[in-house]
Simulated assay, not measured.
Amino acid sequence: MIKVSVMYPNGSDAKFDMDYYNSTHAQLVLDRLGDTLKGFSVDAGIAGGAPGEAAGFIAMGHLVYESVEAFEASFGPHAEELLADLANFTNIEPQIQISEIKR
């Protein structure tokens, strides 16, 4: 199993509409990626590791798949539409990481 993490770094000029992301964009992702998507979650950053420290990321979306190939096959046909929607909720360029789930 793999996890695709889409992470939105925090910053002084960062704009992010969590309500839109959590409802409209998340639903768009779920509707487009279909049954090959094995799990999906949205995290909102609330703090860093030290007292009073801001979260390093405003938000993260996590998508779970059986394999990288399964992710590519489901995301590829919808990439343009999903990426175009980013302008509706943020000015942040997300960081993407694909990880192998070990446990």
Rank of each mutant, 00 (worst) to 15 (best):
Y21M: 11
T36W: 00
H78E: 06
V68Q: 12
E81F: 04
L33D: 02
Q97K: 12
K3M: 09
V42N: 09
D35G: 13
D85V: 08
M18E: 08
D35V: 05
A26I: 00
L82N: 00
E69L: 00
A87Q: 12
N22L: 07
L82C: 13
K15A: 15
A87F: 02
A70T: 07
A87L: 03
T90C: 04
A84M: 11
E93L: 08
D43A: 13
F75M: 11
I101A: 02
I96E: 00
S5H: 06
V68S: 03
M60Q: 11
R103F: 14
N22F: 13
A47S: 15
E72L: 10
A44W: 10
M7C: 12
G61K: 04
H25M: 05
I96F: 02
F89E: 04
N22G: 13
H25P: 03
G61R: 04
V68Y: 12
A87N: 02
M60Y: 03
Q27H: 10
K15Q: 10
A73T: 14
V42W: 10
A87C: 11
D17S: 03
S12L: 05
A70L: 02
V68F: 08
F57H: 14
K15D: 04
P9D: 08
A70M: 06
A14I: 02
I92W: 00
A26T: 07
D13C: 13
F89C: 07
A84G: 01
I101M: 14
A50D: 10
L28N: 14
G56W: 00
P94S: 04
M60V: 15
P77H: 12
S41N: 07
D13P: 09
G76K: 06
H62E: 15
Y65S: 03
V6M: 01
V4P: 01
A79E: 10
G52N: 14
T36D: 13
A54Y: 01
E69I: 03
H78P: 05
L37K: 12
A79K: 11
G52Q: 09
I101D: 05
L86G: 01
A50M: 15
A26Q: 09
L33W: 04
A79I: 06
S12C: 02
A14P: 04
F40V: 01
D43G: 05
E80P: 10
H25G: 00
A54T: 03
